[in-house]
């Protein structure tokens, strides 16, 4: 019994340690984030978690506000509904598949999810979509999510912002909009 408890505590500590080490604070002198796929100006003072082809940012904790920037190769664009992304798709079709992927990835299909708006946008010169979604957790807490995305020959680029409606969504939406405005697909990727 003691051994099991000891191993469990040890594993938890290792997990926590590994999590902590991957979150990095963004300083205001070096706030341009760049990886193989994209570049954007990250908000100074926020924390950034880098997974290589995706990045998560938060200031007060991922449950309070979370901004994600994700690149997926065409075949892995919509894994739950098992649909690829392609440049033949119209922005409205990409938005449709994104909504289906979000719904399908929840066990109950998110019946209470409300699509507040679904509009075309241009991000770094690419025709894409901008979704505004609203939903309620079983606990009753209301959340809002913004999702932006577009597809190139290399794959699907998606950016999202999720925060509780109360206080955080309106406050931190400005930060998300700045990330969208500075978002660039890396040139060497475009030239591939």
């Amino acid at each position: 019994m003691f051994q099991i408890r000891f191993v469990a505590i040890l594993l938890s500590l290792l997990l926590l340690t590994s999590c902590v080490s991957n979150w990095k604070r963004i300083d205001d002198k070096n706030n341009v984030y760049q990886n193989s796929w994209f570049t954007f100006n990250a908000p100074a003072g926020w924390m950034l978690f880098d997974r290589g082809d995706s990045v998560t940012l938060s200031r007060d904790g991922p449950d309070l506000q979370r901004i994600g920037v994700v690149f997926n190769e065409p075949d892995k664009a919509f894994p739950t509904i098992k649909k690829p992304a392609s440049t033949n798709m119209l922005p409205s079709e990409l938005a449709e598949l994104t909504i289906a992927e979000i719904r399908a990835s929840q066990k109950n299909g998110m019946p209470g999810m409300e699509i507040v708006s679904n509009m075309p946008v241009t991000i770094d010169g690419h025709q894409g979509f901008a979704l505004h979604l609203r939903f309620k957790l079983d606990s009753g807490l209301r959340y809002e999510t913004l999702v932006n995305g577009f597809v190139t020959l290399q794959g699907l680029y998606a950016l999202y912002f999720r925060a509780p409606t109360l206080h955080f969504f309106n406050r931190d939406q400005v930060v998300y909009n700045k990330i969208i405005a500075t978002f660039r697909v890396n040139h060497h990727v475009q030239e591939k």
């Binding site: 919509f78 739950t80 509904i81 098992k82 649909k83 598949l97 909504i99 289906a100 992927e101 719904r103 399908a104 299909g109």
Partner: peptide
């Protein structure tokens, strides 16, 4: 519509 909404 519900089926299509989840990609089925």
């Amino acid at each position: 519509a519900d089926y299509l909404a989840v990609g089925k």
